[in-house]
Amino acid sequence: MSNKIPYVNILQSAICIPVSDEVPIALDIKILPDKNIPAESFFGVWLLDVSGSMGGDRLENAKESLIEQIGILPDGTIFNLITFESKVNEIIKDVKITNKSRQEIIKKIQGITERGTTSLYTALEKSLEILRKYSRTNGSLAIRKIILISDGEPTDVHVRSGEENDPNYQKYFMLAKEALEYKSSIDTVGALGEHNVYLMYEIAKLSTGKYIFAENEEELKTKMIIATEQTARIAFSSPTLAVTSITGDIELEDAAQYKPTVIRMPFEKINKRESKAYLRSFEAGDTYQILVKGKIFIDKNNIQTETNVKVLELDFDFGKDGLRETKEIFITFSSDSSKFKLNQDINRKYANVFSQAEEIADCTIRGDAAATQKIQGDETKKID
């Protein structure tokens, strides 16, 4: 990962406003990681669906993709491969990538065949067990990733497609949140539109990973490779943003990323004055833009007018010791309407991005993978 704090710039909606008990504020945050970062080794767990529906070209393309990925993985990467069908199989566990181990891994991948049904929950649970053990033994690799590839509905812990209130979904989502606790994200690759889109999308979102849709067998192969290349170019893994109000209580809506792709990132309320959001990993050379919107509740009697008043502190933790930066947000309160200054463009932008995020949520519940990808942007192409 990078040892250099990225460029961070913040635009705000409220610049000079009248004094009020309730102050609306919107922020447009731009983050630019250094582009001159070499590929870096990481800890990875690949979960490959080998159930009957993955047979034929799907599985062969997935295997070819894995073999190509082995060739491009940086030396020192820790490689784990789990296949799942009616049961879960640990094919490769904690193998460090070297010239010698690459050949041994490829032989094992070539021997994989399809069979059975889709024990997706059990496979995800196994990946968390491996991740948990690595984290608790102080594994040295800062970048940690689980990659889940599937084309079907889970058959071990069933969920009902189109019914997001099915309580079984929460069992999967708890695993996604646990991955986040161990500083790992889960990238999900949904193959050919026959997977549970809502399940795969939410697993990725809740763990700050990527949801990737492969429309055909060839895309399955190439997008798996690109996702691995992107992981090796992560500049900052598991970054967080803490927002603290200086003048009173605060209520924040979701953060909404709109570059390079569209995704909502919910805030966790720490206390009345502080909230925290887990951000997507930042990759070398990409531009990240995030919108934050909320309200600050203040005591008007304690606000000094006609001067800059510090209202917020934004603490960026870039996931590595010493890589933190605090940005301060000031507002001028005035009784002179001729001085009022607002940047309404940020509010309009937030409304548009939030609307897109809502549309994505509707598409995932309907199971429309192509529409989901079209609105959010292709995670393997990073289209604006």
Rank of each mutant, 00 (worst) to 15 (best):
K341V: 06
F84E: 01
D321C: 03
K133P: 03
V311Q: 01
N165R: 15
A39L: 11
C16E: 08
F340K: 11
D299S: 13
L11R: 13
G44E: 11
L220S: 03
A179D: 00
S238Q: 08
E68A: 14
N168S: 06
E313P: 00
R324Y: 05
E215I: 05
L73S: 11
T208R: 13
G52F: 08
Y182A: 01
E268L: 10
A370R: 13
K133M: 03
L131M: 15
I25G: 00
K349Q: 12
G52R: 11
G52C: 04
D151Q: 08
E253P: 01
G162N: 10
T77H: 10
I67P: 12
K269N: 11
Y169L: 01
I147P: 00
E104R: 13
L180F: 01
K145A: 00
S184C: 15
H158R: 14
Q304V: 14
S334G: 13
I270A: 06
L323D: 03
L180E: 12
S281I: 04
S2W: 02
N61W: 05
A123Q: 06
E217I: 04
M174W: 02
A123S: 09
L128M: 14
R280H: 13
Q373L: 08
F333V: 08
M265C: 07
N138E: 11
V45G: 09
G76V: 05
T240A: 04
E68M: 11
E379S: 05
S185Y: 11
L312D: 02
E153Q: 09
V88N: 08
L48A: 14
S338K: 15
A179Y: 02
K126Q: 11
K107F: 01
I303A: 08
S86T: 14
S207H: 09
R144L: 11
F43A: 03
N168I: 03
I331F: 04
K259T: 11
